[in-house]
């Protein structure tokens, strides 16, 4: 991504995680169970891919890669949608 390199999962992220099996999901610790893809995660959360966007370690995951993109312990995952704003 050039000028804004990805976080490598080290450093400040780990300071918020208490177990080695956790990710940081929208800023909060979230427990992983086994190997999860982005598609698995949003399915487990009951979300529909159409109305959200996902970022893993500050890099957007294209919708076409949801089924293949694996989430690893220590990852910083952001899931966003649109809300009212000006």
């Amino acid at each position: 991504m050039g000028r804004f390199p990805n976080l490598d999962g080290s450093g400040f992220l780990h300071s918020r995680l208490v177990s080695t099996n956790q990710i940081l999901l929208n800023g909060e610790p979230y427990e992983l169970t086994g190997n999860l893809t982005v598609a698995d995660l949003i399915g487990r959360l009951g979300m529909k891919p159409a109305r959200i966007a996902v970022e893993v370690n500050q890099v957007v995951t294209p919708k076409a890669e949801y089924a293949s993109k694996l989430i690893a312990a220590g990852d910083q995952v952001e899931i966003v949608d649109f809300v009212g704003g000006g």
């Binding site: 999901l25 959200i52 899931i79 966003v80 649109f82 809300v83 009212g84 704003g85 000006g86």
Partner: peptide, 10 residues
């Protein structure tokens, strides 16, 4: 129409 981008309520 403008909108804002925010974290989904998990």
């Amino acid at each position: 129409v403008t909108v804002a981008v925010r974290r989904v309520n998990i």
